[in-house]
């Protein structure tokens, strides 16, 4: 600064400046020391301001302000967290409900599948073997037997491991034996029935019941109770053509 420019016309101020530059005095030494201190402090402050991190030299009031801001932010974040947790819990419980409903539906499918004959079934029951050597067994007597089984609470029935007997099953006469659901079955007929073995056996063996009827036709009935009877024949489900489910029931 002090060296800038030599003025065209010399004035007392510039004269002094030039003289001072040429011949140092005692006063200049003092000025030099003080200016040196100033420069030292200024450089220090510049360095300090440059490396300052955000909070190091804030005043108390500013710190309180910053703290308030942070607290507000953290309150907001906490609100967000609790909102999100609520959402998460709702989603979790709805997922649980859906899973439960799905399990229930699957169980129902299994149950209905057993009743409708669409899935294989296993469980305690009886195996009835009907021998008909003379081929004189009346179809009505066979039907009566099935009916007795149904009355006794049978849950799954198959004949000769080939035909599953369900609500819609049809029975017809056939020269070779019987035609069940269009499948010709020849004696001996082996009927697998799942249900309470004692009840089922009792339903067939009472006086003038199925067993007596078959023996009157010249046949022979043997009943075997078992803890495990396999009903492996299945039917493909048929969509009803006329009947419709009543909605909302």
């Amino acid at each position: 600064m002090s060296e800038t420019g030599t003025p065209p016309r010399e004035r007392s101020g510039m004269d002094r400046l030039r003289r001072a530059l040429k011949s140092p005095s005692r006063g200049q030494a003092v000025v030099g020391v003080l200016v040196g201190i100033l420069a030292f402090a200024a450089v220090t402050q510049v360095r300090l301001a440059g490396k300052d991190d955000t909070y190091a030299n804030l005043r108390e009031a500013e710190l309180i302000q910053a703290l308030n801001g942070l607290q507000a932010a953290s309150r907001k974040a906490e609100r967000d967290i609790s909102d999100l947790e609520t959402t998460r819990d709702q989603l979790r419980s709805s997922t649980l409900r859906r899973t439960t409903a799905l399990e229930q539906a699957q169980k129902e499918v299994q149950t209905l599948g057993v009743l409708a004959g669409t899935v294989p079934a296993t469980g305690p029951g009886i195996t009835i073997t009907v021998e008909d050597p003379k081929n004189e067994l009346s179809l009505n007597h066979l039907l009566d037997g099935i009916e007795e089984l149904r009355n006794a609470g049978v849950e799954a029935v198959e004949i000769n491991d080939r035909v599953r007997v369900i609500a819609q099953t049809s029975f017809e006469e056939d020269p070779d034996g019987v035609r069940v659901d269009g499948v010709v079955l020849k004696p001996p007929y082996v009927i697998d029935a799942i249900g309470s073995p004692d009840t089922l056996a009792g339903a067939l063996q009472f006086q003038d019941g199925f067993t007596d009827d078959v023996e009157a036709d010249g046949g022979k009935v043997s009943i075997k109770k078992a803890d495990r009877v396999e009903v492996s024949a299945t039917r493909t489900p048929v969509k009803p053509r006329y009947a419709e489910a009543v909605p909302g029931q």
């Binding site: 200049q28 420069a39 450089v43 402050q45 360095r47």
Partner: peptide
């Protein structure tokens, strides 16, 4: 002159000593 020297010395000291305030 001495003032300018003092200025330079102060800047250099501040740069090299890097004092902790």
């Amino acid at each position: 002159m001495i003032a300018i020297i003092g200025l330079v010395v102060g800047v250099v000291l501040g740069l090299f000593l890097t004092p902790d305030v």
